[in-house]
């Protein structure tokens, strides 16, 4: 195990920003935010961020684009029917595994 020297700086910046984003509002905000535009923007940000992170990157997250696409569809469908985070992740992984095995040994 090793830590590159420059890694410490990266870690400090990454953990520092992540922490400050959580800490500052919790310590400072006791009043409610009133501006509707700001609130609406903040409401949409998480969903826009997460979807831009997932799509299209998920198609390159496994060894095979077709298998990853199957995993994506399974995740969307299971999430649509209200399954929890762990169930969705497990179903998606298993479907990718099965698809990869099929492609490898049967086709």
């Amino acid at each position: 195990m090793s830590i590159r020297p420059e890694f410490a700086l990266y870690l400090l910046v990454m953990a520092g920003v992540t922490y400050l984003v959580r800490m500052i509002p919790l310590v400072l905000f006791k009043e409610k935010i009133k501006n509707r535009f700001v609130l609406s923007f903040l409401y949409y940000v998480p969903y826009a961020v997460l979807s831009a992170m997932v799509f299209p990157a998920i198609f390159y997250a496994s060894g095979n684009v077709i298998a990853a696409a199957v995993g994506f569809i399974v995740a969307v469908v299971t999430a649509f029917f209200g399954k929890g985070l762990t169930t969705v992740a497990a179903c998606s992984c298993v479907s990718v595994l099965v698809t990869e095995l099929i492609i490898k040994y049967l086709i």
Partner: peptide, 15 residues
Amino acid sequence: SSLGVAIYAMLIAVV
């Protein structure tokens, strides 16, 4: 390689 999609699937489950 199949575990690579796990985190993405979890994010999908949030959205």
